[in-house]
Design a protein around this nucleic acid. Sequence first.
DNA 1: CCTACATCCTCTAGCGACTAGAGGTGCAAG
DNA 2: CTTGCACCTCTAGTCGCTAGAGGATGTAGG
Lengths: 140, 140
Amino acid sequence: MKKITIGEAARRSGVKVPTVRYYESIGLLAAPSRSEGNQRSFEPADISRLAFIRHARELGFEIDAIRTLLTLQDDPNQSCASADAIAKARLVEVEQRIRSLMALKAELETMVEGCGHGRVDQCRVIEVLADHGQCTHSHH
Amino acid sequence: MKKITIGEAARRSGVKVPTVRYYESIGLLAAPSRSEGNQRSFEPADISRLAFIRHARELGFEIDAIRTLLTLQDDPNQSCASADAIAKARLVEVEQRIRSLMALKAELETMVEGCGHGRVDQCRVIEVLADHGQCTHSHH
DNA sequence: CCTACATCCTCTAGCGACTAGAGGTGCAAG
DNA sequence: CTTGCACCTCTAGTCGCTAGAGGATGTAGG
């Protein structure tokens, strides 16, 4: 069992070094054992856990949601209903976010198309921002 | 010229009261004149500026980008090339974000579909998060 | 005029999820 | 033995607000 340094753990999991320490500090990752010279020594399981966290973060899960997911993972006898609920809630959020970004995209396209690279007083970009009534959509 | 209080300005522009003060504090909005009793007194132009900021924030522009847009708006003789560039950059960002959210949506759907509400050790949600290799897409 | 109450004021601290930097120690190669 | 990188802790900063304390002002009713 060779020791895995924090740098090695970071490289293998794709989580940055200071972020690994941060996750430890907020209790998302158990404090690893230390070497003679007080340096962290990780286990392969820690790498998996870090990769799990990284992936969940990439998917936009919040730290608290990840904490719940990790608790579930740690106890495989539990029902996965909570995990399912978290994922479903996230799916709804994502769908909503996509809808609003599509509307936003349309608005930005109108702005950019309308801009004839003239002076500011004829610029659609500024104009549309100044007067929300000209939007191609309405916000909630 | 009746005085516009901060509460009135907030209601008319859709920006919250503490946020108006915050914008003043970071120099996005000029400090308005004050009443006898040291209360802010806004002009109609301030309301427009606040509405402009709010709309730009809704569109996801960062404060610094808005600062630039406002400088352009203040000087209508300038070329609007900068405004155009900012909007175009934002459009690219939004398109990128939509693409990655679509991929994410697909991934979440796989997770939720696969979950048979059994125990955690058969749960796709946990499994997919734990092993990125199972993803239906790859992150950059 | 007095009181009640909403609104205003300044100031500081907190949020999430890191990131950056200072100032110091450990460790492996040449 | 020295060079130089990786590691350590700690604090403070990022962004764009938001919340709260503790107090002053403004307004409407009695």
